[in-house]
Amino acid sequence: MPQVRIIAKNFMDMVASLPAMKLSKLYQNAFICEAILRSLPPLAKKHVLQLMYMEGPVAAKLLEEWILPDYSSKHKVAIDRLIQLRVLTEIVDRREVSYKLNPTFQSNLQKHLINGGVLPREPMPSNITVRLPSLEELDAYALEQWECFLLQLISSGQVERPTNFSFSMMRVFQRGLLSYRDKEVPRLTESGFQFLLMDTNAQLWYIVREYISNSEV
Rank of each mutant, 00 (worst) to 15 (best):
residue 36 I to E: 03
residue 99 Y to Q: 00
residue 148 C to E: 05
residue 180 Y to C: 07
residue 168 S to N: 06
residue 57 P to D: 04
residue 135 L to G: 06
residue 79 I to Q: 02
residue 84 Q to I: 05
residue 188 L to P: 01
residue 172 V to W: 01
residue 214 N to P: 00
residue 188 L to H: 04
residue 67 I to L: 09
residue 152 Q to I: 01
residue 186 P to L: 04
residue 65 E to C: 13
residue 9 K to I: 12
residue 212 I to E: 09
residue 187 R to F: 04
residue 187 R to V: 10
residue 20 A to F: 11
residue 168 S to R: 13
residue 190 E to Y: 13
residue 3 Q to T: 15
residue 82 L to I: 04
residue 32 I to H: 04
residue 160 E to C: 01
residue 38 R to G: 04
residue 92 V to G: 00
residue 9 K to R: 15
residue 211 Y to R: 09
residue 95 R to G: 05
residue 133 P to G: 05
residue 107 S to P: 08
residue 139 D to P: 00
residue 149 F to Q: 02
residue 175 R to G: 04
residue 77 V to L: 06
residue 69 P to S: 11
residue 87 V to Q: 00
residue 52 M to S: 03
residue 77 V to F: 03
residue 18 L to K: 07
residue 75 H to Q: 12
residue 83 I to W: 02
residue 26 L to H: 07
residue 190 E to W: 14
residue 12 M to N: 11
residue 10 N to D: 15
residue 173 F to Y: 11
residue 163 T to K: 05
residue 207 I to F: 06
residue 114 I to M: 14
residue 36 I to G: 01
residue 213 S to M: 07
residue 41 P to H: 09
residue 197 L to R: 15
residue 199 D to T: 13
residue 210 E to T: 08
residue 191 S to L: 15
residue 155 S to T: 05
residue 14 M to P: 02
residue 204 L to M: 13
residue 54 M to K: 10
residue 90 E to N: 06
residue 180 Y to Q: 07
residue 105 F to V: 07
residue 85 L to H: 08
residue 74 K to I: 02
residue 115 N to H: 13
residue 182 D to V: 15
residue 7 I to C: 07
residue 159 V to R: 02
residue 78 A to F: 01
residue 33 C to P: 00
residue 103 P to T: 09
residue 46 K to H: 11
residue 119 L to T: 14
residue 1 M to R: 14
residue 80 D to L: 12
residue 120 P to D: 11
residue 207 I to Y: 07
residue 216 E to Y: 06
residue 59 A to S: 00
residue 94 R to K: 08
residue 157 G to D: 08
residue 106 Q to Y: 02
residue 47 H to Q: 09
residue 154 I to H: 01
residue 133 P to F: 08
residue 208 V to A: 14
residue 159 V to K: 03
residue 67 I to G: 04
residue 63 L to Q: 08
residue 23 L to T: 07
residue 41 P to L: 11
residue 97 V to D: 00
residue 94 R to I: 03
residue 90 E to H: 00
residue 30 A to P: 01
residue 92 V to N: 05
residue 162 P to A: 02
